[in-house]
Simulated scan of single mutants.
Amino acid sequence: MPIELTDEQQAFVAAIRDFCARECGTRAQRDALTNDGADPHSEQLNRQLAELGWLGVAFREENGGLGGSTVDMCLFLEETQRGLAPISGIGPTWIVGAAFEKFGTPAQRQAVIGGIVEGRSQAIAMSEPEAGSDVGALACRAERVDGGWRINGQKTWISNGPWCHHILLVARSDAGGAKHEGLTMFDVEVPTDGVEIRPIRTMGGKEQADVYFTDAFLPDDAVVGQVDGAWTQLMAGLNTERLILGAMMLGRAQRAFDDTLAYVKQRKQFGRPIGSFQALKHRLADMALELECARLLTYDVAQRVDADPTGMLARESSMVKLKTTELAKHVALEGMQMMGGYGYATEYDMERHVRDTVVSTIYGGTSEIQRDIIGKTLGL
């Protein structure tokens, strides 16, 4: 590991690895949990993790969590992804939970974070048909009415939408100012009248959804944080969001590498293991190097967040997200190439690695957006 783990953290990592090996260590087990791979998230396995208390590692004790550090959070995410635990919903769920921990009322934290700790998934709704990377362009409207707010509009590409219990909605509450002003966060319980969720079929499964709001009423106490203050609140959560996504893809990149390495050691052509040929050996050496660099970067930033939880690490967190997701995609594609036809076959995990990693460079801020952010911090 790139950091010196405490005895407790080492035991935590060992316990996660043992759990994954025991509960989802074989393809047959994972298929049974995911409807033969069609569902990327298993509520059953998620509840088992909740019973162990691990889903609370990212949250404070007063909110029902374990009070773990950011490093602890990253360890859990890396190890569960490396172990192929089918809990794809954990990333958006913890991102939502972090927002409620910072800005939610006690009642909201009890409902949302309490639900997470018990194994329920949550979703965040920002993207719209005409507002993806440009979040400030969103048009879903929140209009003040007697006793609350009326919501109208559409959200799209909402991760966890098909199975979430709460949606953290970002809507335009005031259209009179600059585009990053007049945005408000709302807690939307599922189901709510006037809210329709339609799953989107993708190459990764049915984890995305369109969400339609048609005169949906939300009471005043559904506001999360400050009215018209969502942009500032979103910016305050970027460190955590990018570390969550980065740690997950770090784990998946490591698993794709592990699977590739195991294959090239046992697959023989021309009388010897294909991994002994320089063309493959050097590519694996480069990937091992890049994995170590990505791990060092990820945990360095996690330690910085632990040292100063209120600090803004826009450049560093964007680097984590960019490096880990691009690396995961690269390793998975290289693994497929080295495995040949077997890497393309659904009998093996490599094709799933490809499907799950390619999209990681899109969600949570595309690689192009991350590079733009990093460039701005350089004065460009």
Results as ranks from 00 to 15, higher is better:
residue 166 H to N: 10
residue 172 R to T: 11
residue 159 S to W: 03
residue 171 A to E: 02
residue 161 G to W: 04
residue 167 I to Q: 06
residue 167 I to L: 05
residue 124 I to S: 06
residue 142 A to N: 13
residue 153 G to M: 09
residue 155 K to V: 01
residue 146 D to C: 00
residue 152 N to V: 05
residue 140 C to G: 06
residue 139 A to H: 09
residue 178 A to K: 15
residue 152 N to F: 07
residue 163 W to M: 13
residue 166 H to Q: 08
residue 160 N to F: 14
residue 169 L to S: 11
residue 164 C to Q: 14
residue 168 L to G: 00
residue 148 G to D: 11
residue 172 R to W: 04
residue 168 L to S: 03
residue 168 L to Q: 00
residue 165 H to P: 13
residue 173 S to C: 06
residue 141 R to E: 15
residue 154 Q to K: 15
residue 145 V to R: 09
residue 154 Q to L: 15
residue 145 V to L: 05
residue 173 S to F: 10
residue 127 S to T: 08
residue 148 G to V: 08
residue 150 R to C: 11
residue 159 S to K: 01
residue 130 E to D: 09
residue 163 W to D: 12
residue 130 E to H: 15
residue 169 L to G: 11
residue 168 L to N: 04
residue 167 I to K: 08
residue 148 G to P: 12
residue 128 E to W: 11
residue 162 P to N: 00
residue 128 E to D: 01
residue 150 R to I: 12
residue 167 I to T: 08
residue 152 N to M: 01
residue 172 R to P: 11
residue 130 E to C: 06
residue 135 V to G: 10
residue 174 D to G: 09
residue 138 L to W: 00
residue 158 I to S: 06
residue 142 A to W: 06
residue 171 A to G: 10
residue 167 I to P: 08
residue 177 G to I: 00
residue 129 P to N: 11
residue 126 M to R: 09
residue 132 G to V: 04
residue 152 N to E: 13
residue 134 D to N: 14
residue 167 I to G: 13
residue 126 M to A: 03
residue 153 G to D: 03
residue 121 S to M: 14
residue 131 A to T: 01
residue 169 L to M: 10
residue 138 L to T: 01
residue 134 D to V: 02
residue 177 G to D: 08
residue 163 W to V: 13
residue 171 A to Q: 00
residue 129 P to H: 06
residue 142 A to H: 09
residue 171 A to P: 14
residue 133 S to L: 15
residue 137 A to T: 01
residue 132 G to L: 11
residue 154 Q to F: 05
residue 171 A to L: 01
residue 122 Q to R: 06
residue 128 E to K: 02
residue 162 P to M: 04
residue 148 G to E: 01
residue 127 S to H: 15
residue 168 L to I: 03
residue 158 I to R: 05
residue 157 W to N: 10
residue 175 A to K: 07
residue 126 M to V: 12
residue 172 R to I: 04
residue 171 A to T: 09
residue 152 N to T: 14
residue 168 L to K: 07
residue 130 E to N: 09
residue 132 G to E: 03
residue 148 G to Y: 06
residue 154 Q to D: 05
residue 143 E to K: 06
residue 144 R to P: 15
residue 136 G to Y: 02
residue 173 S to N: 05
residue 134 D to Q: 12
residue 140 C to K: 00
residue 165 H to R: 10
residue 172 R to K: 13
residue 166 H to E: 09
residue 144 R to W: 04
residue 167 I to C: 13
